[in-house]
């Protein structure tokens, strides 16, 4: 379904931007991580690019934000620990963006947003965050 309601378009565009930023951060983090952490970051590059694609199909192409040339994470990534912390922080932040989409969509699109919020919250735990009642 293509959403035209301004609130829905804004919520979907927000998640596209947040996911684009996550992809950039995961790429940056991968350079500092080793072993399982590095593999997870690399896998997430593909997973989050797919999220961008899915969300982009939900609104008119003219409303899809351009991929930014760069992104500076709130927690700067300078070593393995800050890489994990940063991805945990960004994963939790995604929950709110997806909750906003869930609130303005319906059917399978809402189901997708809810499942994405859940996956993001689980990712935050995998990156070392403690759970939160309302992940942010």
């Amino acid at each position: 379904m293509t959403y035209t309601d301004p609130a829905a378009v804004a919520a979907i565009a927000d998640v596209i931007e947040a996911e684009q930023n996550y992809v950039f951060a995961a790429g940056l983090a991968g350079a500092f991580l080793k072993g399982g952490g590095r593999r997870r970051a690399v896998n997430q590059l593909a997973e989050h690019r797919a999220q961008v694609q899915t969300a982009s199909l939900m609104i008119d192409s003219s409303a899809v934000p351009q991929t930014p040339p760069g992104f500076e994470p709130p927690t700067p990534i300078t070593d393995a620990k800050s890489a994990r912390d940063s991805l945990a922080e960004l994963s939790n932040a995604l929950v709110g963006f997806y909750a906003n989409i869930a609130a303005v969509t319906e059917g399978d699109d809402r189901r997708w947003a809810i499942a994405s919020a859940q996956a993001s919250a689980r990712d935050a735990i995998q990156w070392g965050a403690a759970s939160q009642a309302f992940p942010t």
Partner: peptide, 12 residues
């Protein structure tokens, strides 16, 4: 949705 996400994160 927030609650579903939180409870999903309790599993891992």
């Amino acid at each position: 949705t927030f609650i579903a996400a939180s409870e999903s994160s309790h599993v891992p």
